[in-house]
């Protein structure tokens, strides 16, 4: 029974990873691609590791620590990459409406 639940979670994680890859191929510009890649692949990682922890309960603590590390490093690194891409002025896609970072930099610490 636990094997079934663990396997279903691993399969869900694999589906999320696939959607991350698909998103990176189909999105129009750098920022949307990074958003698709990071969010979906971090969730995919977490689901795969959770499924593995249910499948083999003896490894539970180590896998939880790995999940913690993945949650720490993946979003931070993609945030740094997106800021760097903004810094060298990579153009945004055509349909972009708001540029929140330029707003925030123009009135620092003012109205939110």
């Amino acid at each position: 029974m636990t094997e079934l639940i663990g396997s279903i979670l691993v399969l869900l994680g694999a589906i999320f990873h696939f959607s991350a890859g698909l998103g990176m191929l189909r999105m129009p510009d750098v920022y949307t691609r990074m958003q698709a890649g990071t969010k979906a692949s971090t969730l995919g990682n977490t689901l795969v590791l959770l499924g593995l922890a249910i499948y083999q309960p003896g490894w539970g603590l180590k896998l939880l620590i790995i999940v913690y590390f993945v949650l720490m490093t993946n979003p931070i690194s993609s945030h740094a990459l997106a800021r760097a891409a903004y810094g060298i002025r990579i153009p945004m896609a055509g349909g972009t409406g708001i540029d929140a970072l330029r707003h925030a930099r123009r009135n620092p610490g003012g109205r939110k």
Partner: peptide, 15 residues
């Protein structure tokens, strides 16, 4: 101008 943002700095201080 080329200091990293606060999120990255906090993450680096932990990591």
């Amino acid at each position: 101008s080329d200091e990293a943002s606060e999120i990255v700095r906090t993450g680096a201080e932990i990591l």
